[in-house]
Design a binder for these strands. Sequence first.
DNA 1: CATTTCACCTGGTGGC
DNA 2: TGCCACCAGGTGAAAT
Length: 281
Amino acid sequence: MPELPEVETIARGVDARVRGDRVVEAWFSGEREPFKTPPVRQAQGLAGRAFLSVYRAGKHIVCAMGPAADERLRDGEQAEAQWIVHLGMTGRLLVTTAAAPAEKHTHARLTLKSGRELRFVDPRRFGRLEFRELQRGPAFGAPGAEPLEIGAAAFAALFRGRRTSIKAALLNQKLLAGVGNIYADESLFRAGIRPRRIAGRLSRAELEQLRQALKKVLRHAIRLGGSSVNDYVDAEGERGFFQLQHFVYQRAGEPCRRCATPIRRIVIAGRGTHYCPACQH
DNA sequence: CATTTCACCTGGTGGC
DNA sequence: TGCCACCAGGTGAAAT
């Protein structure tokens, strides 16, 4: 479900609601998935800790957790641990009241001192939950570059010599972190590049067009609260509006918004891929 | 190493 | 209404 704009929206919403709050108790379902760290260790590690901040890294949501003992939080407190949430395709991270009935497929419930609850719900269980103690190991870092921060030269270097399609390369999280199927298709349309083009054969000018298009699309989508294609909602349960701005994604057969040519759907890297045969070359 | 394919899951949709 | 095939925004392991 969620790509960079949706994850960013959720992370901001959760941050606004839980920053400075403290975990009273953490409950995890007994299911084998979606735990990257055994649920017992997550529950023990989280108990008593305060949220220093919540932010996005690639498609991951990182909760920076403070010490468990101190009652008072100081500004600029160093994180001692991280709770890392990946939403997979159908994951949702919700802030509710403790009394709100838990919906089906709730895998984690963090009851907070304020009386709120932070819940992780994921029907397909493609999401992952991980807990890291920073004294015992490295902090989490997304593998690829942030598309909103990368410069022209570094962006071009990512694709140099690649023999795979530009669409597949955009989806590769080790290159760029946070781009998924929707925003790969939408940015390729806006850059006028066909998704099957070989990444390593794009000109420097085309790559720069793509970088700019990607930034524009991602920023615009963040402003609109992400794309609600199926069931995506933010931390408050609100839908996003960027789906109304899609030029190609899930518009197969419909007329291109620029030239009225029917949008085509093909499969690349096993993913539905949408483009305009007239506008993209 | 780079690239491709497939399995992992549940739920919604559209055809019959 | 019911049944079934098919599709879905992601990833990582296995195969090539």
